[in-house]
Design a protein around this nucleic acid. Sequence first.
DNA 1: ATGTTATAGTGACTTTAGTCACCGTTTTCT
DNA 2: AGAAAACGGTGACTAAAGTCACTATAACAT
Lengths: 214, 214
Amino acid sequence: MVSEKIELSECFPFIEKELKEEFLLFGELKSIPKGQYVVKQGSYISFLPIILDGLIKMYAEEDEVEFLLYYIHPGHCCILSFNHLFKQEAVRFSAKTEKETKVLCLPISKVQEWFGKYPSFTQIILKDFQRNYEDLLNTTKQMVCYKVEDRLVNYLTKKAKLQNCNMIQMSHQQIAADLGTSREVVSRITKKLQATELLIQHKRYIELKKPLLA
Amino acid sequence: MVSEKIELSECFPFIEKELKEEFLLFGELKSIPKGQYVVKQGSYISFLPIILDGLIKMYAEEDEVEFLLYYIHPGHCCILSFNHLFKQEAVRFSAKTEKETKVLCLPISKVQEWFGKYPSFTQIILKDFQRNYEDLLNTTKQMVCYKVEDRLVNYLTKKAKLQNCNMIQMSHQQIAADLGTSREVVSRITKKLQATELLIQHKRYIELKKPLLA
DNA sequence: ATGTTATAGTGACTTTAGTCACCGTTTTCT
DNA sequence: AGAAAACGGTGACTAAAGTCACTATAACAT
């Protein structure tokens, strides 16, 4: 119980004491292993996940293609559930953990109650909604306007920054899925990038070189 | 003044009387001619436009390419401004009128004041935010997963429904811009669709045939 | 009336990316 | 150890879409 309190305070330094109490009273703390669904496209949910630690990947599936929308970091909550404060509808995208992730699941009924009642809560929700909207807009622009090569470079550098390490331990398969393309394409582009010395393809990981980390 | 009141009541039948008074007191009613900017990407805004009549097109520009995000109809407000209830930042997309449009511009300061104070206002804002988010997600999926041909068909049928008329009075140039492609591509596809009798290309407009209107 | 502009049609070409087939290596499992 | 699965590399092909160049017509402006 103590550790949750600490984490909550770290992630949300500005929330009211009473709200924090309610969080701990009504929220269910879950630790989800890496690579597992938090929410699956097409399902119904009854809780709002707030991320205390770890990383969650939001992505959409459409017509067999699966592509990354954006990431959600500690201290933020998933838009998907806000989407469902009002409508009880099937969600239109999925969320998976990228690594071992601690989430606090707040029941929707309570969320509705708190919303408006606690100004700091309202702020958190709205800001996250906004952030997600902007992330999505950005992803859309990227998808529409840039070649796979550019998007891959962008993806890798972001990934490196995110994990604060220039070694990307992912298979071409996984990367391809995130970018909504195929493995062969990723293979070809990494090879090309290797020729221009922007990265090195090791056995189990990709090493980004300086020009990409600026 | 009387007509605005009527329109407000039509568009927002559920708002409180006091809020309606405030709308009329602090809001500035504007009638914007067809094809004009409501908001331009990169600019700063200080008002929340609520649409009473007409139609507004939201689109993004990136790297010379300009593409349609979604439309905003009477009774709704533009997400872009909600985006700016919190942050004073340059907007990342543009809004233009598709036809003569009446908007009520609410000053941001008042919007912040009303938000929370009037439950119906909060509801309006949040629902619109959600709607816009979903529209954007939908657009993204379309862009990523479908061919230009499918998107064009989709675009035309939606357009026809929107204006309740199967004659689309747009140049290939304009259509291409909305879909983020080039004129030649639109020309070729319309010709192909004409061959399969899904539409007829007239001098100044495109006529959709029955199979597309089902 | 005539020059200007906007519009649409079209062929040829290039680029980009997705698909298929197949290979060799590494990892994992039993 | 040996089989199976995952991974990466590659060539050949195809499909989709963007670009360029040019034509013809219709609409508009002075």
